[in-house]
């Protein structure tokens, strides 16, 4: 069973002037159930608009709760489905969820081309095979994607949108905007 606060997701920024435009990262937990997320919305917009988009995504994700890993992921996607149309129609959402309860960890994503898990300290390996249902096109999915277990044990995950490469381990924290 993952320790409280152990499950975490990150998503690298896109190199450029505004690497983290539209990026969000967060988590919720209650008792043995926890969910973490990292994602981006409207990342190619100018910072003002991307910030609005990120705030909208934070608004809906702030409501997420659940009774187990399947339930909390289903509720998270339901919350994402309530995003204002303005943001849904952009079809550029990239979002990774990792949810845990005492029975294990599940992953679910939209707009993510690769997910890696930290299987050993600093050792990142693929959490899913290519062709996995985890990997979908960007955008708010019409139906909640089917959650997938990670191929390898671990509690920290990186979701890579199609236009972002896996950072080198020494650059990982800064590349993902993790500052503390």
């Amino acid at each position: 069973m993952p320790e409280p606060g152990a499950v975490a997701c990150v998503m690298p920024g896109t190199p450029g002037r505004w690497p983290f435009a539209g990026h969000v990262r967060g988590r919720w937990e209650a008792g043995p159930v926890q969910i973490a997320w990292a994602g981006r919305l409207a990342h190619s917009a100018l910072p003002d608009e991307a910030w609005e988009a990120a705030q909208a995504l934070r608004d809906v994700l702030a409501t997420v709760t659940g009774d187990g890993r399947f339930d909390v992921i289903a509720r998270a996607w339901a919350a994402v489905g309530t995003l204002p149309e303005r943001w849904k129609t952009r079809e550029d959402l990239c979002l990774l969820f990792a949810a845990a309860d005492p029975a294990g960890i599940l992953l679910s994503a939209a707009g993510v081309a690769n997910v890696y898990v930290e299987a050993t300290p600093g050792g990142w390996v693929a959490a899913a095979l290519s062709g996995s249902p985890l990997y979908t096109e960007p955008g708010v999915p019409e139906r909640a994607p089917v959650p997938q277990p990670s191929l390898r044990p671990g509690t920290r995950f990186i979701g890579l949108p199609r236009d972002v490469a896996l950072p080198k381990p020494k650059d990982l924290a800064l590349a993902c905007g993790v500052r503390s």
């Binding site: 690497p19 990026h23 969000v24 990262r25 990292a38 910072p47 991307a50 910030w51 990120a54 993902c176």
Partner: peptide
């Protein structure tokens, strides 16, 4: 001035401490 949006876009997804 849209300082929050621009600094967050450079800093990262959790700008609270900044």
């Amino acid at each position: 001035s849209p300082l929050v949006a621009q600094l967050a876009a450079v800093w990262g997804p959790e700008p609270d401490d900044l």
